[in-house]
Nucleic acid binder design. Sequence first.
DNA 1: TAAAAAAGTGTATATATTTGCATCTTTAAC
DNA 2: GTTAAAGATGCAAATATATACACTTTTTTA
Lengths: 161, 161
Amino acid sequence: MQKSKRLSEIEKILGEEVITSQEALLRKLQERGSFCTQATLSRNLRQLGVSRVRDGNGNYRYSIINDRKVLADPGLKMNIVTVIRDIIDSNGLMVIRTIPGNANSTAYYIDNAGRHEIAGTIAGDDTILVIPRSGVKPGELHECLEAILPGLHRQTGRENG
Amino acid sequence: MQKSKRLSEIEKILGEEVITSQEALLRKLQERGSFCTQATLSRNLRQLGVSRVRDGNGNYRYSIINDRKVLADPGLKMNIVTVIRDIIDSNGLMVIRTIPGNANSTAYYIDNAGRHEIAGTIAGDDTILVIPRSGVKPGELHECLEAILPGLHRQTGRENG
DNA sequence: TAAAAAAGTGTATATATTTGCATCTTTAAC
DNA sequence: GTTAAAGATGCAAATATATACACTTTTTTA
């Protein structure tokens, strides 16, 4: 069956490129040797839980994570971890890198965890800067993030450079 | 004008109820005394940055959460230096200022240079924050950036603030 | 292995959302 | 106060996405 291959291709493409419509995604899939119709793609996207989210200009973009899921249900933390690529400590600041387009939603989640250790976050497209409160040590901050994002330590390739 | 009232009603409704279509949102607005057509609502949702995201069952739901930043255009890597205005060191972090609208593309370029010295970057509209890995000294980071962006030192007005 | 059930898919179509255009309203400039 | 410019909106039409139905393939059951 070619479905599973197609699903993983979809995930890969969405992690690498900015896709604004199913038609566009369809073309990308074709370039990689996966073929189907828009109808099937629509079904696949639903199965993958892919959302259509806004970028800063109000344009839509397809994204593998659905922010609100994480938000509405604090129990579903695991999903957010899947978009995290790595975490790097930089002199006490923590830099989290995500797959493209997911920094904001992840940062939002971190902000809303209500952890005292964290003064705030700044998110770009695929990078989040987590700023600790004064006096919070890197190790504490890292532990804090692990508490917020269970399973995190298993995901990050290099946790300290 | 009733637009601003409608916008805040929209935010309120989305924060309180599960809305799965613009038509449904339209009805909720009417219940609260805000009237418009679906076309206008579509425009309003874009202005608010509202996204259409999946819930756990794959169904759509409108949500105020979104990703705010646009991914850089990987195409314009060449003349990247010409858009840089200056570079300022701030306690080991490097702040690069570009001409408006070019921070993203520049940051993208820097990220993709694959330099170990750099933990990550965060870009706004005309400002980039370059975050070094722990132990990397400001001078090293600056050299690193010069290596990535040849000609940089001639462009930057004040290289250390 | 045959039959039944479940899953996958395309086509055509339905539903949902966005947009071009004309119009009306508000704001800014004299 | 008049005119120009910008903003808001509805309508109709264009796009984009989802789904009903029929058909094929795969998986399960006995």
